[in-house]
């Protein structure tokens, strides 16, 4: 059975199905992160003392990671634009760079975590580190999820380009919308956890 509206737009929504689907999924993601942001506000406002993020966390490393994720958003959108100009070679280049940026982000996060854990600053240490590990850990899982999807479209999933180029281009747009959301969440996590 053929999946309907993977390329053409549904008359009632004006969108192909995956586009509406990813936005509804992201709406649920906003609620997930929103609940944790709300918990952060409640924990911080209810605490007698709350450290400034920069007292315990590395601002230069996090600023570097912000730069990495913003750059990956640019390469991700460029990979989609490359498919729109039917330049598959450039698509591969930009998608590869996006995956590489994801790896760099996770590597930096790994060294950050390692340093904290070695110093005994684990989630059980205090409420600050509990919410820090929860928020950044959940975000990290989203980065890994995005990289798995991007990795699939970089490798075996790219075969669709030769058989159904329009559907493949739409798939990259959808993967991109998700990846940009992951970037967007980090844009809020960075100041909230590290700078305030």
């Amino acid at each position: 059975m053929e999946i309907p509206y993977t390329v053409t737009e549904r008359p009632d929504t004006g969108l192909y199905n995956a586009k509406l689907g990813v936005w509804l999924f992201l709406a649920s993601e906003v609620m997930l992160f929103g609940a944790l942001f709300s918990s952060y506000v409640l924990l911080r406002s209810g605490a007698e003392e709350w450290p400034h993020g920069w007292q315990h966390l590395s601002v230069p490393l996090a600023a570097f990671n912000t730069l990495v994720l913003i750059s990956s958003s640019v390469t991700m959108v460029m990979s989609w634009a490359s498919l729109k100009t039917k330049d598959f070679g450039k698509y591969r280049l930009y998608m590869g760079l996006t995956i590489l940026a994801g790896l760099i982000f996770l590597a930096v996060k790994f060294f950050e975590y390692r340093e904290h854990i070695l110093m005994g600053e684990v989630p059980a240490h205090d409420t600050f580190f509990a919410i820090y590990f929860t928020l950044t850990g959940l975000h990290g899982l989203h980065v890994i999820g995005g990289m798995i999807v991007n990795g699939y479209f970089f490798g075996p999933g790219a075969r669709m380009w030769s058989s159904e180029p329009e559907r493949f281009t739409n798939r990259i747009e959808i993967a991109g919308v998700y990846w940009h959301f992951v970037d967007l969440v980090w844009i809020f996590l960075f100041p909230i956890l590290y700078l305030l």
């Binding site: 004006g14 969108l15 509406l20 929103g34 609940a35 970037d183």
Partner: peptide
Amino acid sequence: VASFFMHLITERRVVFGALVLTVVFFLVLM
């Protein structure tokens, strides 16, 4: 990011409908 990378600036009305609802519930959470 949302406007240009996620193409929200040129998106259809139905997406904004879902997002307005999301914003309302997000504000309740906040």
